[in-house]
């Protein structure tokens, strides 16, 4: 993947480490909450344009999406995406009791919402600590999106996305999770300045 975002390798490395920490934190929270071990793969972090996101998601059907927007002197839209078929699997393996498919569907939205909330909050926390910025964070929202057409009214095709791909092993199931941090170009510039300042201080 070409670095379309003009981050230097060190800045990139820094961001990857931030997301590593975030995902690790999220896994810990989930593990504690669900009282089971959660294996996580080394997150793959990429920096891509928003219009390319759909190529990076292994989804043939709809996508379940949890978003939380963050705001300080710049704006970030954080998103967690699960392929729809996968998300049902998550809910099923998280449920202590066995439920019918119909029931799982009912629970899907709120369960995904909470998982998204946990994962995103962990990533945001890691991000916020690392760059020493305090964000105002909106409550999580659940959405279903079309995998082929991830267009989102608030974003431009050219907007930068920190795309984090991570596999979660829950019980017997392998789940593709995708965490996205989407920044508008203005925000991207501000973030870059901050990263630069921090790296200089090391």
């Amino acid at each position: 993947m070409t670095n379309s975002v003009n981050l230097d390798p060190l800045e990139e490395d820094f961001l990857i480490e931030i997301f590593n920490l975030g995902i690790g934190q999220a896994a810990a929270s989930l593990s504690m909450m669900l009282q089971q071990e959660i294996e996580i793969s080394v997150p793959e972090v990429r920096f891509i344009k928003f219009c390319d996101v759909s190529h990076h998601i292994n989804a043939s059907h709809d996508i379940c999406c949890v978003t939380q927007s963050m705001e300080s002197d710049f704006e970030v839209q954080s998103m967690l995406l699960f392929p729809e078929e996968n998300s049902l699997e998550i809910v099923r393996c998280l449920m202590k009791e066995s439920f019918s498919d119909e029931m799982i569907l009912e629970l899907q939205q709120e369960a995904i919402l909470e998982i998204g909330n946990i994962v995103l909050n962990a990533c945001i926390a890691s991000f916020s600590k690392a760059i020493q910025v305090h964000f105002k964070i909106a409550p999580p929202l659940f959405e279903k999106l079309d995998s082929q057409n991830l267009s989102h009214s608030t974003f431009d095709k050219e907007n930068v996305v920190f795309f984090v791909k991570v596999n979660l092993h829950l019980s017997e199931s392998l789940i593709d999770g995708n965490v996205l941090f989407i920044l508008k170009s203005e925000s991207m510039r501000i973030l870059q300045q901050k990263l630069h300042a921090i790296l200089l201080s090391l």
Binding site: M33, L34, Q68, V91, L94, M95, L107, E110, A111, L113, E114, N117, I118, N121, I124, A125, S128, H134, F135, K136, I137, A138, P139, P140
Partner: peptide, 11 residues
């Protein structure tokens, strides 16, 4: 951290 949270009844 000012994090909002939604707890699922499912969990």
């Amino acid at each position: 951290f000012d994090f909002p949270a939604v707890l699922s009844h499912a969990f």
